[in-house]
């Protein structure tokens, strides 16, 4: 068991290293750099000297190998550097934006699961019945709508009828100002919730179908247990386990939709940061934020795997 856990942890560390290397080179392979990106149109009045000076200030003139070695050594020492864009340390930027993303992410998950679980459950129980089709049809319809589209239309409706305040400037945390925070998150959490859990719903349905055919379910029914008990106590619990295994993927999907939603609602979260940093070629922020997201998903996967290994000894061997 111990060997298995160590093996998994080593694997996870290696994956994080790969992600870091990937994002380090990816942002540098892209055309342009911060020296020119930050000037935008004003670069037209900049001389070549001007840009070269800027590049030297940012350390972008060093050979890529040297930059990589520096980055690696700094990252190992947990020094993520300073943002080109804001000149704050990257740790500060992450510390500031991560809570927003976690808040929104959790809200999205709550919405997503409270849609996906009942729909997946009901449509499995009433497989191929009218209820299955209509519920699943509706859910899939909602899942198929692009988040940016639903969010744009929803926010327009809110503005037109003056429904509630979307506090895009105050940017309140849930624990600071719950009332304003929740209305601010309301549209993105529903738009993201519908889109982020498509996989969960489908997986749950097919798992439920499989579990419901298992012998132990049949036995439970034969014992004369009520159907509701059979489903919640026996079937759902077992069907949910595989859903948990894809948790890492689900989180990655949710973060993906957060990229657009945070942008649309001025939520200064991780998704917003990664997009801004990518377009502005803010190398330190981009590579670190991608790294943080990766650590997050890899860690989730690791925990799930290890727990699974504990539960199911067969997995350790594979």
């Amino acid at each position: 068991m111990q060997a298995y856990i160590i093996r998994r942890i080593l694997g996870a560390v290696f994956v994080v290293f790969l992600v870091g290397t990937f994002s380090f080179f990816a942002i540098r392979v892209l055309p342009g750099d911060f020296a020119t990106a930050s000037l935008g149109l004003d670069a037209g009045s900049a001389s070549a000297d001007n840009i070269a000076q800027r590049r030297a200030d940012l350390g972008l003139d060093k050979p890529i190998g040297e930059q990589y070695a520096n980055w690696l050594w700094d990252t190992v020492r947990l020094d993520l550097g300073d943002s080109f864009l804001t000149q704050n340390t990257v740790w500060y930027e992450i510390g500031r934006s991560l809570p927003y993303s976690i808040e929104l992410g959790v809200l999205i998950m709550i919405v997503g699961f409270s849609v996906a679980i009942p729909v997946g459950l009901i449509s499995a129980i009433f497989q191929d019945k009218a209820l299955d089709y209509s519920l699943r049809g509706l859910a899939i319809l909602a899942l198929a709508a692009p988040v940016f589209w639903t969010a744009a239309i929803a926010s327009l409706v809110v503005l037109q009828w003056d429904l509630f305040l979307i506090d895009v400037i105050g940017q309140p945390h849930l624990w600071e100002d719950p009332g304003n925070a929740i209305t601010w998150y309301l549209i993105p959490m529903f738009a993201g919730g519908f889109a982020g859990t498509a996989t969960t719903m489908r997986l749950l349905r097919s798992q439920m179908l499989e579990v419901l055919r298992q012998d132990y379910v049949r036995t439970a029914r034969a014992k004369g247990l009520r159907e509701s008990v059979v489903i919640t106590r026996h079937a759902l619990r077992n069907a949910l386990l595989p859903v948990l295994t894809v948790m890492g993927v689900t989180i990655a999907t949710i973060i993906g939709s957060q990229v657009i939603l945070e942008n649309m609602f001025n939520i200064p979260g991780i998704g917003n940061k990664v997009l801004t940093a990518l377009f502005a070629r803010d190398n330190p922020v981009f590579q670190s934020v991608v790294l943080i997201i990766a650590v997050f998903t890899v860690l989730t996967n690791l925990v799930v795997d290890i727990m699974y290994g504990v539960i199911d000894p067969r997995i350790r061997l594979s």
Partner: peptide, 22 residues
């Protein structure tokens, strides 16, 4: 498998945005 893990640890949209800009 580790490379696959790496690709899956980066949000799909971010991955696509980076790739397509190259």
């Amino acid at each position: 498998q580790r490379i696959v893990d790496m690709l899956q640890a980066i949000p799909f949209l971010v991955l696509v945005l980076v790739f397509t800009q190259i």
